Amino acid sequence: MVESKSLVLDNKQVNQKIRRMAFQIFENNFNEKEIVLAGIKNKGYILAQLLQEQLNEIASFKTRLVGVSLDKEAPTQSNISLDCDEKEVKNKTIILIDDVSNTGRTMAYSLKPFLNIKVKKLETSVLVNRSHTQFPISIKYSGFELATTIKEHVEVLLEKEEKCVYLL
């Protein structure tokens, strides 16, 4: 059986969503001197890089890019870590970023490194929010809200030449 793909967002639309999200982040944090974009590896980190590019064009504050590593399939058995020293994010506004939010599980576990650090504010951002919340995670900045069944799958491509979102 061949899986059928339905294009949800094309390259131009994904770029527009990322730019709009960057403006929303800027509008809600314009008084900050620096914000930390914490991208969940792998695609969340790529999205964080794309948001950083947009924010560097429009915002007056500095942005710091940080990677959050964890095993998405077995987060309770994995080491959840930042690719920087905790002191670098202390007392800062943090935006935790992933490509898709399904149940909120990955976001919830990705908060772990920040629970031992005093942060100024912690917000969340995803390109696609499916809203099948099973964890108490609310997405602050969402590029696209997509109503799906829990069995459907969302595929996000964030390559330089092709950015798009498919529903499988």
Rank of each mutant, 00 (worst) to 15 (best):
V128W: 07
I137S: 12
I95Q: 10
I139S: 05
L82E: 04
S110T: 02
E152V: 02
R19L: 11
E73N: 14
N102G: 06
C84F: 04
N15V: 06
P75K: 04
E161V: 09
M21K: 07
A48H: 09
E3T: 04
L96D: 03
V68S: 08
G39R: 02
S78T: 01
Q13P: 04
V154F: 13
D71E: 09
L55V: 15
T106R: 03
I25E: 05
K120R: 13
L122I: 15
R20Q: 12
P113S: 06
N29T: 04
H132P: 09
L96P: 14
A108T: 03
E162I: 00
A147I: 02
L51Y: 11
F144D: 02
N11E: 07
E73T: 12
N102D: 13
N28W: 01
R64K: 15
L158P: 06
Q134C: 12
A147P: 05
V14C: 15
V2G: 08
M1D: 04
T148L: 04
D10T: 10
E53A: 14
N15M: 05
V165E: 14
S138K: 14
S81M: 07
E57M: 11
V66Q: 08
V2F: 09
S60M: 09
D85M: 04
L146P: 04
L122Y: 07
G67E: 14
L50M: 11
K163Q: 13
E162L: 10
D83K: 09
T106K: 01
K120G: 13
